[in-house]
Amino acid sequence: MERPIIALNNVWVEFGSIIVLEDITLAVRPREIVSIVGPNGSGKTTLLRTMMGLTRPTRGTVSILETAPAEIMRTGRIGYLPQERRQDERFPVTAYDVVAMSRFARTAVIERLTRTDRQAIEGALDTVGMADAARAHFGSLSGGQKQRVLIARALALNPEILLLDEPSTGLDAVAQDSFYLLLRKLRDERGLAIVIVSHDIGTVSMIVDTVACIKRKLHFHGKPADCLGSDRLAEVFGKNVYVLHHDKNCPTCRDDHA
């Protein structure tokens, strides 16, 4: 088995007297799509922020690409899409400007895009299917298109891992399906490992390799089918949870049923 590219060992996170994460041990392997699911307030976002070094564990160790999280984030090897995206609709930038931001972030002193930078930006926009909208005002794009541009911004750094916090928030069902298909394409074509934080256990489970159910503790980590059919789901979400199983009529699942 390949060595994990993200490894959390007995990680605890406490905010004062409140225990947010308790003794979490979790490994993510190369080219794996993992979904971290759990109800609101279960510690999903804290777990993601701990992987990136934005939140420090009170106990335990975290390693990402065999490096300490605080050091790896400045190298551009991780692409991150946070949960809170409160950009002003009037913010005067195009889709291209937004993607270019991540390349400018790597500038040493003088901000100037090289040919390599421009190729990375155009390639990232092309990968997410937004090349034609490169000059469009970001604020006037639909929710799904904005998500694609923000993913392109992360991809422009040629990362090895994508960390996505509730990426389907605000997207309609069609845009969600299309977005999840894009993630699978990124894993297949670019060899990315992807960690998705989500409270949507139904749709996400159809595209991921493994599901990690957390509610302060890690209750389950394994194949989605094993999680959906077990009592672990009730442990995490409570008893009144109904999971919608996708079939061959669902665009996201179609490839699996073909």
């Binding site: 934005l54 984030m73 400045r74 190298t75 551009g76 991150y80 946070p82 950009q87 937004v98 931001m101």
Partner: peptide, 12 residues
């Protein structure tokens, strides 16, 4: 100004 958290994690 656009996205402070991501700017920070991207190296700004």
């Amino acid at each position: 100004s656009f996205d402070e958290d991501v700017a920070s994690t991207s190296g700004v």
